[in-house]
């Protein structure tokens, strides 16, 4: 013990101990890391292949606006940290790449296959952590959603832009909230967690994952609702009804009046 306490007072002791600690921690870290990755080595390899593929697609199709390292530029935002969900939404719905530099990217057939989109998403996700693509296990809206609750949440949070029936609506300067009819449940979910374009982000604290499923279930119920009360006239309210009233209503009756008042020749 005496020997040890004498050793403690040597000048070399503190740096030596520090070095020893660093070596132990470093080795331990490497060892633990290796033990974690070893079982999934193939998955990891596949992922890194996807990242490489994604990066290639990115360099060809996206980097002219978003920059060679997705750092963004004058016309396009940085993609560092937007997450895989954002890429899956923007590319999967055909919004990216944009058709032109107008105020808003519009939905169109996707330029990339599902595999290419996944690779792109993997690449962007590899840059920095961000919202992940919701998997099938998360999108159990049929089982976990509540239609009526979803409707209430939709009217409170979404209807002011997307219209009470999800038919879409106009925003300022040519921007618009698109119609939600026929949109993939996954894309609706991704839009809520990433807030594309003019849309705000609805984080899990504002609208819980279960509530998000309710909203999706309600949107699907509106989409599948049969024409209650007859032809829906676009579900856009009194504008088309007024048009119908003048053309198919009074217009038809005037035509009949003209016919009734025509003298037989």
């Amino acid at each position: 013990m005496r020997k040890l306490s004498r050793l403690r007072r040597r000048k070399i002791t503190a740096p030596a101990l520090l070095l020893l600690a660093l070596v132990i921690v470093g080795n331990a870290y490497a060892f633990i890391g290796a033990t974690v990755t070893t079982p999934g080595a193939t998955a990891s390899n596949a992922r890194s292949t996807m990242v490489t593929e994604g990066r290639e697609i990115f360099l060809r199709g996206c980097s002219s606006c978003h920059g060679l390292n997705a750092e963004g530029g004058g016309v396009a935002p940085s993609l560092v940290g937007v997450g895989a969900a954002s890429v899956d939404f923007q590319v999967g719905t055909g919004r990216m790449p944009m058709a032109d530099m107008s105020v808003q990217a519009i939905r169109k057939p996707s330029r990339y296959t599902a595999a290419e989109t996944a690779a792109l998403a993997e690449y962007v996700a590899s840059l920095a952590p961000g919202p992940a693509i919701p998997g099938a296990a998360q999108l159990t809206f049929e089982r976990d959603g509540n239609t009526a609750e979803g409707g209430e949440l939709f009217r409170t949070n979404c209807a002011m832009c997307h219209n009470a029936a999800g038919q879409g609506g106009a925003l300022t300067q040519g921007k618009q909230a698109p119609s939600l009819m026929g949109v993939e449940p996954r894309h609706i979910y991704e839009a809520m967690i990433t807030g594309p374009q003019s849309m705000p982000v609805f984080g899990d604290k504002a609208i819980t994952p279960q509530e998000k499923l309710s909203i999706i279930k309600w949107i699907k119920s509106v989409e599948n609702e049969k024409g209650l009360g007859g032809a829906s006239l676009g579900k856009v309210g009194p504008v088309t009804e007024g048009l119908m009233g003048w053309v198919g209503g009074i217009g038809l009756l005037i035509a009949i009046s003209v016919w009734l008042a025509t003298k037989s020749r």
């Binding site: 209430e152 409170t156 209807a159 002011m160 029936a165 879409g168 609506g169 309210g237």
Partner: peptide, 23 residues
């Protein structure tokens, strides 16, 4: 044959809610 004022689509009135395209 033609639906008019489909009130079930709009939902009940609450002063905190509004629909785009209200006419």
């Amino acid at each position: 044959v033609a639906s008019i004022n489909p009130i079930w689509v709009f939902g009940p009135y609450t002063p905190t809610q509004i629909s785009a395209g209200s006419q």
